[in-house]
Simulated scan of single mutants.
Amino acid sequence: MKVARNTVAKTEIKKLIHSSEVALSHTEIQAALNDLCDRVTIYRVLDRLVEEGSVHRIVNVDGVIKYAECHDCEKQHHHNHVHFSCEKCKSVTCLEDVEPTFKLPKQYQVKEVNFTLSGLCPKCS
């Protein structure tokens, strides 16, 4: 895994994702950065953060990619937790304490797990 140099954009994007209680889309990140950098730079930084293992991608029920900070991924990159996508406010939240279970036939080998539940979050209920 190649670790890229820190830039102002990378530092600010990491800070923004770290301070957010919900996963953020590229558009939400770009709006929060107030023209600090262009949209292509944001995409590159987000790809780099995913590659480095400090951020993970979540696809919500509308197909929008959101980004959230990784927790407990120092030794092995994993995201065996459930994501909750609110149908009303469109927020996506990592539910770290909910671990999905499933059983597959022996011929299948799981490399990545992405569970997204949808409904209404506590703020919209």
Rank of each mutant, 00 (worst) to 15 (best):
K2M: 08
V3S: 06
A4D: 04
N6R: 08
N6I: 07
N6A: 09
T7K: 03
V8S: 00
A9K: 02
K10R: 10
T11C: 00
I13G: 02
I13P: 01
I13Y: 01
K14E: 09
K14P: 00
K14Q: 05
L16N: 00
H18V: 01
A23Y: 04
A23D: 02
A23G: 09
S25N: 02
I29V: 10
A31H: 08
N34P: 00
D35P: 01
L36I: 03
L36G: 00
I42H: 01
Y43H: 11
R44D: 08
D47I: 08
R48H: 03
L49V: 06
G53L: 08
S54K: 09
V59L: 12
N60R: 08
V64M: 07
Y67Q: 04
H71A: 15
C73H: 11
E74R: 15
Q76H: 14
H79R: 12
V82G: 05
S85F: 13
C89Q: 03
K90R: 15
S91K: 15
S91A: 14
T93M: 10
C94H: 12
D97I: 10
D97N: 14
D97V: 13
D97G: 06
P100E: 02
P100Y: 04
F102D: 03
F102N: 03
K103D: 11
L104A: 14
P105C: 08
Q107M: 13
V110M: 12
V110G: 05
V110P: 10
E112V: 10
V113E: 04
N114W: 07
F115A: 12
S118P: 00
S118M: 10
C121G: 07
P122E: 05
